[in-house]
Design a binder for these strands. Structure first.
Lengths: 332, 332
DNA sequence: CTGCCTCGTGACAACGTTGTCAGGAACCAT
DNA sequence: ATGGTTCCTGACAACGTTGTCACGAGGCAG
């Protein structure tokens, strides 16, 4: 900036005025400074600028999601980004991979970077540590998983309802022995889905077989193995509820390996591209990813704009998408 | 920081020493300052710190990809992030959506933010504008699409080879009327894939039918329509090459609607989750997404580390993954 | 011609840090 | 006791900006 000022023969302040398009600079000075800027490839230092401007925003928000490459996280991030763009804000994105320490470290780093806001798909069980971070004035919005130990806005899916929709659908088609595959039960979403599966049974007066409910499955391959094991039982399940899309693909693979894709019913939580192209098409519980992302973004930018009402907790209802795999009847 | 110093009864500099874990502070002072930091929720201002430290890195890189929610972009970003993490660097990610203006604006913004480096999956035809930006010392690595009008590192896939592999595979299975669906031909990857499709034919002495080659298809639905139109020809194709995964799903849908999934061969560029679960499994040309991301990250951090050798251009070879859809023979 | 106002410009301080250097206290060897 | 170390600490300037204020030139009304 000093060089630009020298080259244009003006003061630092005048360069600042031109760069920030402030009024009150004569046309020829503006032109001279502009030429100097171009000649020297001058780029204002945003950090210094933000430092000086009292209480200015950094135009940066942090988004901590489970895994950037998973279609749910990526979809939420994408619609978040679209809204952020409209607010001239860039997005710092990171994957947590269910890492509790990483979550804390990243939040700390982002607060230190003075992000204007935080979007968090937490890996941790409780976020008490956030209380201190949020006292610094950085607003946070939780997504997919609700806050514990700290009061903050959240946007979550009604996982209990979603799991009920899926389970009732299978019960309605006559199934009484329904297997269920779930992620780690300490993850709130998995926990609620388990509860939904159970309560749908209870409401219908059906007692689920504990041996058919498997929790703590974290990979597609593991899901395949589990399904094979369940199908080997003396009294195998006639239907399967997959509590997560990656578990559904494991289940489909196991069924395919046994030629049972048209014999055993399957409903999955989470839609994914091409699910309708499977044969039979995969019946799923769909979460409106783009709506989730947009809602999160709106809430966050309201907070950034100074909104200080008590935290809001938005629950988004999932819907059942019928495609064939969930409508297979049990054997006569 | 002033408040912390006052509360602990020390100077600013001593607080700075404690916060940065510098040696030479007596244990009791260190403890007093630590307590004050905790009591006041003090967070150092990274921007101010970077401003003062001459030539310090911001620990920030920018990644401009085509679309965060597309599995290719997301996969590259994810492995990039993993390497960045090891370098204690955060990733600013944004989607360009083939927007040329947006690309320039984002690059400018990122340079202004003083990112340590830039990863670019360009939307523009030429990146002459980058020359000025790079003069500021910010290194850039291109990914998926090569630089034009500026000399910079790049990591691209051998699209010509990939398209040849797919086309030759179909020719080898006896197909002579192969339809092909491509994205906008001005996009370098699409352009090369078209060339690979053509050259494979030429090498085998087969003349492709121009009416079967459709360029400029940008959505799944459009691909479905195009395939229907092609199948309505008097002399319809016996095989289809989809130049991109979203075009493949349109093609699968069209074939499904006509009950031709087991009659017309199909090979796609780009693998995607569950492609093996389709019936028949989708034969694809696979790009090693994670290797691409890792290579890009390594090159970028070498540059950030001061490497100043001439730009390197890495070409990654795709492979054919055989799953069934590509091995369907033409009608006798 | 005087006084006042407007306009364009620059000097200066401040944003929150840290590098440099200097100074005082405590210790050791002479 | 003297001089020299070593250890701990603080004063000050500087990083690249911008908000505040002041100043001079020119224009206009009285």
């Amino acid at each position: 900036m000093r060089d630009v000022a020298a080259l244009a023969g003006v003061s630092l302040k005048t360069v600042s005025r031109v760069v920030n398009e402030e009024a009150g600079v004569s046309p020829d000075v503006r032109e001279r400074v502009g030429a100097a800027v171009r000649r020297l490839d001058y780029r204002p230092n945003l950090a210094a600028s933000n430092l000086r401007r009292t209480g200015a925003r950094t135009g940066l928000i942090g988004a901590l999601v489970q895994d950037l490459s998973n279609s749910f996280s990526a979809g939420v991030l994408r619609s978040l980004e679209d809204i952020a763009r409209a607010h001239r804000t860039a997005v710092l994105a990171a994957s947590l991979d269910e890492g509790v320490d990483r979550e804390q470290a990243m939040v700390h780093d982002l607060v230190t970077r003075r992000v204007d806001g935080l979007v968090l798909m937490p890996a941790s069980q409780r976020q008490d540590y956030l209380v201190a971070e949020l006292r610094t004035g950085t607003p946070a919005v939780f997504v997919d998983r609700p806050p514990r130990g700290v009061d903050a806005d959240s946007v979550v899916v009604d996982n209990l309802l979603g799991a009920r929709l899926a389970t009732e659908h299978l019960l309605d088609h006559g199934h009484r022995r329904i297997a269920a595959l779930f992620h780690l039960p300490q993850i709130p979403t998995a926990h609620e889905r388990i509860a939904g599966f159970t309560s749908a049974h209870t409401d219908r007066g059906v007692r689920p077989d504990d041996r058919l409910v498997v929790e703590g499955i974290t990979s597609t391959d593991e899901a395949t193995e589990v399904v094979h094991r369940l199908l080997d039982l003396d009294d195998p399940p006639t239907a399967i509820f997959a509590g997560r899309n990656i578990l559904a693909s494991g289940a489909v693979r196991a069924l395919a390996e046994r030629g049972l894709r048209r014999s055993v019913a399957l409903v999955s939580f989470d839609d994914f591209p091409m699910a309708d192209l499977l044969d039979p098409g995969l019946t799923v519980v769909r979460q409106d990813v783009s709506r989730i992302g947009r809602t999160v973004a709106q809430m966050l930018f309201e907070r950034i704009g100074g909104e200080s009402s008590p935290p809001r907790h938005v629950v988004i209802e999932p819907t059942l998408v019928v495609r064939g795999s969930g409508e297979i009847p049990p054997p006569a």
